[in-house]
Design a binder for these strands. Structure first.
Length: 282
DNA sequence: ATCCAGGAAAACG
DNA sequence: CGTTTTCATGGA
């Protein structure tokens, strides 16, 4: 099996990267191997120190997907501006934001609203099993995430088996809109952050939070700073104490938090957000 | 039973 | 216009 040697001074933690909640289609076996579906590939990978053993994709794909080409120390140094984020950087060393397929990322975060990570994983898995092409790997069957046209061709009653709840019509409407417009990905990618954000929010089921997640995880827009209940709590406790610690999140609060973060953490504030989110349970 | 979870649409005033 | 209510689902 191919092995990729990691640069000693380029930190990478496969476990942190895949378990921090940014992706929903990876599973870790007790023996340390991770299995995941990315596009039409089943990828198997494990890390032993500075070596990454993998199969299912060429090395260039692995490097690209895990953002191994990025100078992570330079990135974290750029937002290492206070003791609290410093602690998160130290404890989550090696955490990288992966480059997700945009369409799947879009649907994933439409399915994420008012929910939790295990539920999101279940929903995405249901959609793939119902509509996606089967993929074989080591005697087990995985499923690719279906394209926009596949979902657009269904109806809400068929989607109901995927347990999306009130999100079913959102997924369906967005699938139809995207299926009609082939250049969707490139048009979003060509826009600056604020305009791309506005464009994404025109889609059904995509609000400020989902738009920021999609821009951060699928479009490498690192100035996006998604604010969920966890991030709101952390920011209220450690950065903007006037927020208090209520649980609701108004539009004004969302913008206040992300503006603060953009100013305080700088151009890679989205990366800072992921470090804060990854250390939310402590 | 009640509350909560990587929120957003619809209804309301 | 900004603010509140509702939404489906499962786990704690």
């Amino acid at each position: 099996m191919p092995v990729l040697s990691l640069d000693q001074n380029q930190p990478f933690s496969l476990d942190l990267t895949l378990s921090c909640g940014q992706v929903f289609r990876w599973d870790r076996e007790p023996d340390g191997w991770w299995y995941g579906v990315v596009g039409s590939r089943v990828i198997k990978v494990r890390q032993d120190g500075t070596s990454l053993t993998f199969k299912g994709a060429p090395p260039s794909f692995i490097r690209q997907y895990f953002s191994l080409d990025m100078d992570l120390d330079a990135v974290t140094a750029s937002f290492d501006r206070d003791p609290f984020i410093h602690d998160a950087i130290v404890r989550c060393r090696g955490l990288r934001i992966v480059r997700q397929p945009a369409w799947e990322c879009l649907i994933s975060y439409i399915c994420a609203t008012n929910s939790n990570i295990p539920m999101i994983r279940r929903r995405i898995s249901h959609i793939a099993q119902t509509y996606g092409n089967p993929l074989e790997c080591e005697g087990r069957t995985y499923f690719a995430f279906p394209g926009p046209a596949s979902l657009a061709a269904t109806c809400t009653s068929a989607l109901s088996g995927c347990k999306l709840g009130y999100r079913s019509p959102y997924v369906l409407k967005t699938a139809c809109d995207i299926a009609d417009e082939e250049g969707w990905h490139d048009s979003i990618a060509s826009l600056p952050y604020e305009q791309a954000r506005s464009a994404l929010m025109k889609l059904r089921g995509v609000g400020p939070k989902a738009a920021d997640c999609i821009l951060l995880f699928a479009f490498q827009n690192y100035e996006a700073f998604p604010v969920d209940v966890w991030i709101r709590r952390i920011m209220g406790e450690h950065y903007i104490k006037t927020l208090g610690s209520g649980s609701s999140l108004t539009g004004w609060e969302y913008d206040t938090i992300r503006r603060f973060a953009q100013k305080h953490f700088g151009e890679f504030c989205g990366y800072a957000q992921e470090y804060l989110f990854a250390s939310r349970l402590d």
